[in-house]
């Protein structure tokens, strides 16, 4: 029978925070194949197969049911699919990897404080220029849904691969949707967050894929693991 698969971030600060969280619960992660290996073991849980992967790969694998459990950011899974809650459940919010997905505009827009203002500005801009108001983001799905919810009709999303906060100054977009932890990067780029412009308060979560191939053994292993992690 297949063992329980648990995917964890493979590098960077998130990996360190995951290891620290596990260590706090008395669980030691041992990477096989050295520092650059992509598999690991968890002391005391021989029937748990650990996979190390990027946060976005973990999100995709959870949504596709390719792994049983995984730790990744809520923003990543919510952006990747619209029916997240039917494909996975959030077992625990881990208190690290915090990042808010927010709507920000140039700080000189002193006439814009709320999403209702943004909706008006978008309509004005299309009427005056014939072009839609542009919002740069890599969160196209979350942004589209949030704009629909706030009746912002005359906008267009510009896909931004990186350095989104520089888009207004570069003339690529009028506003942005991006992640922020302290707001310092937005402030440094002369941007401000709208009063009701927080789309998602995200953090790293332990998630359980609903679509994975669950059987009695994997369910029992997961229950033991959750007990050890004090989640049961």
């Amino acid at each position: 029978m297949a063992s329980l698969t648990l995917a964890l971030p493979s590098k960077g600060r998130l990996k360190e925070q995951c290891e620290a969280w596990l260590a706090k619960k008395g669980l030691v992660l041992r990477q096989t194949g050295g520092e650059r290996g992509y598999s690991a073991t968890l002391d005391g849980f021989d029937d748990v197969q650990i996979r190390l992967a990027s946060a976005s790969e973990i999100g995709k694998a959870l949504l596709a049911g390719e792994i049983h459990l995984g730790i990744t950011g809520e923003d990543i899974v919510r952006e990747a699919a619209s029916d997240v809650d039917t494909r996975l459940t959030i077992e625990a919010r881990l208190g690290f990897g915090r990042a808010d997905v927010v709507v920000a505009v140039p700080n000189g827009w002193i006439d814009v404080e709320t999403m209702a203002d943004l909706a008006e500005v978008a309509t004005d801009m299309r009427r005056q220029t014939g072009r839609r108001f542009r919002i740069a983001t890599k969160f196209t799905r979350l942004t589209a849904q949030f704009m629909r919810d706030h009746h912002v009709a005359d906008h267009r999303i510009v896909d931004s691969a990186g350095a989104t906060e520089g888009a207004p100054a570069a003339g690529i977009a009028e506003a942005i949707v991006d992640i922020t932890t302290s707001g310092a990067t937005l402030t440094a780029n002369a941007l401000k967050i709208l009063d009701d412009g927080v789309i998602l308060k995200s953090e790293s979560c332990l998630m359980r894929s609903t679509l994975a191939d669950w059987n009695d053994q994997t369910r029992a292993t997961a229950a033991q693991l959750f007990k050890r992690l004090e989640l049961a």
């Binding site: 140039p106 002193i110 009028e174």
Partner: peptide, 26 residues
């Protein structure tokens, strides 16, 4: 004057006149 005093910037297609006119209209 307000933007200059508060060191606020106005990049991109929205000009000072847009902001001032809309502020007044609102």
């Amino acid at each position: 004057e307000v933007l200059s005093l508060a060191n606020l910037s106005l990049p991109g297609n929205r000009r000072l006149s847009h902001v001032a006119d809309r502020l007044a209209a609102r």
